[in-house]
């Protein structure tokens, strides 16, 4: 089973994508399954490490938090652009991260960049320090605490 289906989530995702982009029928189900299985096998050749089991509940909570944050920071950044805030200061923040798992780091990068107002620039693998650019920077310490408690804690819980 694991040899035929090394990446079950990837294959399932591809099959769903195939069915969404075409109209559902038996032929497409078979064709999509074949492609999904093949892609899973190819991916296993490229990237042998199968991601470990992760907990779903913290990820769901994280998704909710991120959705709210994206709406809030959208409004904040839109307002800043409109009002042309003269006293707005942007700047770089160096944030030490405890996360090690590449998948978790990728997810954190996705969250931080998708949220307007923060941009992930560079992560040093050896020291675990992340260089972040913040659009409206008031206090660097505030951002370190925010990322550690709001996102990183949940990611550590999910991938830990």
């Amino acid at each position: 089973m694991t040899r035929l289906l090394p990446h079950p989530l990837l294959s399932l995702g591809l099959l769903l994508l195939w069915l969404v982009l075409t109209r559902f029928s038996l032929g497409h189900l078979v064709l999509g399954s074949v492609i999904a299985l093949g892609a899973g096998l190819v991916f296993a050749r490229l990237e042998p490490a199968v991601p470990r089991r992760r907990r779903v509940w913290p990820l769901l909570r994280l998704a909710g938090i991120v959705a709210v944050d994206i709406v809030r920071s959208n409004l904040a950044v839109a307002w800043l652009i409109l009002s042309d805030g003269r006293n707005r200061r942007s700047g770089f923040v160096e944030i030490p991260l405890r996360l090690q798992d590449p998948g978790a780091l990728a997810l954190l990068a996705l969250i931080l960049t998708a949220t307007p107002g923060t941009a992930w620039l560079e992560h040093d693998r050896a020291t675990g320090v992340l260089l972040l650019h913040v659009f409206d920077l008031k206090d660097p310490e505030e951002w370190r605490v925010l990322i550690r408690d709001r996102y990183e804690a949940l990611l550590l819980e999910a991938f830990g």
Binding site: I70, V71, N74, V77, A78, I81, D84, S90, F92, T113, A114, T115, P116, G117, T118, A119, H133, F135
Partner: peptide, 23 residues
């Protein structure tokens, strides 16, 4: 897009397109 044109530093401008791509 307005922010992309009006903001003065490159690292500020990198935040602007996320408005369009997120919400």
């Amino acid at each position: 897009a307005v922010g992309l044109v009006r903001l003065r530093s490159f690292y500020d401008r990198i935040h602007a397109p996320t408005l369009g791509t997120s919400w």
